[in-house]
Amino acid sequence: MSLLKFTIKRTIHGIVVAWAALTIIFALRFISPVDIASALIPPDVPPTARESLIEDLGLDQPWYVQYLRYIGGVVQGDLGYSYVSRISVNQLAINRLPATLELAVAATLVSVVLSIPLGVISATNRHQVPDYLASFFALLGISTPNFWLGIMLVLLVSVMLGWFPTSGREFGFYEAMRLLILDGNRYGIIQWLYHITLPAITLGTYYVALLTRLTRSEMLDQLSEEYVRVLRAKGLPETLVTFKHVLRNSLIPVVTVLGLQFGSFINGAVVVEVVFRWPGMGEFLIRAIRTVDWPVIQGTLIIIAITWVTINFGVDILYTIIDPRVTLEGESE
């Protein structure tokens, strides 16, 4: 299958997934016992103003009209307007998305850079002190609630030591880089790093733990494969056996898990953004859920679903690069 055909197929799949997810949420909203109008509009608003507000928001229409209107908007790239702030969801999302992406990339870097060496050390020193230490930290990592870890880091590193700020994001990466490149001013990028460090570590920790365990067990599996013995028999130095062959084979499932873990990555991002008041999609979504701001909730979910499908697509492409046994045919369901 050509890459183009594969891309088209996956795009259609993505649209279907996003549509289905949206429809489910939309349906749930109509069977919900929570009355949106009374949740949105304070009780002291006079009835006439109340009516006109409801009309304004389109809540007086039957469900299928609301649904078709919304779908029509989404098809044209319009995610509607927030019930609460009356600002376009597109605009809100564009403001918020970069912060989340930056956090996600930084946390992925933290987790990959730490976990793979830890996993390798653990596997190549099996049942020795480094292995036990790495396993212990991995166990701590998967058992620690993300939000609590964040708060403890704030307590230790920010409140007690004062090394990093407790919350916020003063510069986006883009603005910071602009400042650096155009004006040669490093202030922005330093501020960016300064603010993103703790959130990235907090979000990354769970994955450090997860990927360390996974890398370790995959390495051990691969080390017991017959081909490893053959590599040694032909005299290949242990460094090459470990890195060029064993690790490479072990990373194939690690890449899959990184892709599959996207969902819990978003979960983590939601929590971490709340803890550090990081102005990303997660914090935005929590606020929308608290205020029953349906267009914002729906818009965010669509963006998340599309990102999920895109990441899976990327993982499948990456797969064909790192594992020659996998072809696009095999992976395209």
Partner: peptide
């Protein structure tokens, strides 16, 4: 070795 199929690194 005995089993050529598992004696090469598949990647």
């Amino acid at each position: 070795f005995q089993d050529p199929m598992s004696s090469f690194d598949p990647t």
